[in-house]
């Protein structure tokens, strides 16, 4: 058996034996990325919807900024959060650097603009459809945003999934602010980078499988949601 085949076999064995070290890393990855998703959704959904339904000076600038922030490289965000949280930085006193909290902050900053920008697009097009109805029914402003968010729920679920996919697969930001510390801040992507560098291909491959599985699940969920929406003529 070649090294590669051996690594492959060992990776599968690790996976199916639910290796505790592996589980720990996967669990932390999910915890960090789901927390970031929750926070980014809390910020991005209402913000994107509010930008879609309001008209204010500088709105075009906000939209351009949001779209630009969608493309920010994770390492740059990692660097910014590092500078914020490092002992000399403005938030250094919190002592958050090299903790899961720092990783959650970095991933939140990474995906909040993505969720906000996609929410803006989704809600803006629905608002185009609803605006006359809203005015005709005299729907007050504070009811419009929740109504639009609710009625765009299928599209927004796919927006959230896109955000999650981006967060969980990202390596640059969590590496910088988490430090890839064993049992503390080691997540799938940083572990893969490390194990590969060390030559422990089995461990890296096993984690790679899990990441791919997550990606497939996320994409599968998107397809199922789209189909459900279409069946209800909500698409």
């Amino acid at each position: 058996m070649s090294d590669f085949e051996q690594a492959f076999a060992l990776a599968l064995r690790l996976l199916f034996s639910f290796d505790p070290a592996l589980i720990e890393i996967v669990a932390l990855s999910l915890k960090v990325s789901l927390s970031a998703l929750f926070l980014a959704g809390l910020i991005g959904l209402p913000f994107g919807a509010a930008v879609a339904v309001t008209r204010f000076p500088g709105r075009g600038g906000v939209i351009i900024l949001l779209n630009a922030m969608m493309g920010l490289p994770p390492v740059v965000i990692g660097l910014l959060v590092y500078m914020l949280l490092s002992r000399a930085g403005p938030l250094g006193v919190l002592g958050l650097l090299y903790t899961p909290a720092a990783m959650i902050i970095a991933q939140t900053i990474l995906i909040a603009p993505i969720i906000a920008a996609l929410t803006w697009q989704v809600v803006e097009s629905l608002e185009g459809e609803y605006s006359e109805l809203f005015r005709s029914m005299r729907v007050p402003f504070h009811r419009r945003v929740p109504t639009l968010l609710f009625d765009a729920r299928f599209s927004l679920m796919t927006v959230m999934l896109a955000g999650f996919g981006r967060a969980v697969a990202e390596v640059g930001a969590v590496m910088i602010v988490g430090g890839n510390i064993d049992h503390l801040t080691r997540v799938m992507t940083t572990a893969i980078a490390l194990e590969t560098a060390k030559g422990d291909l089995a461990q890296a491959l096993a984690l790679g499988f899990v990441l791919v599985l997550i990606a497939i699940t996320v994409n599968g969920a998107v397809i199922v949601i789209r189909q459900a929406a279409r069946r209800r003529a909500y698409a």
């Binding site: 629905l126 609803y130 006359e132 109805l133 009625d151």
Partner: peptide, 10 residues
């Protein structure tokens, strides 16, 4: 009521 009714996605 509009000629082409706009119904909520509900």
């Amino acid at each position: 009521v509009f000629q082409k009714p706009v119904l909520l996605r509900r």
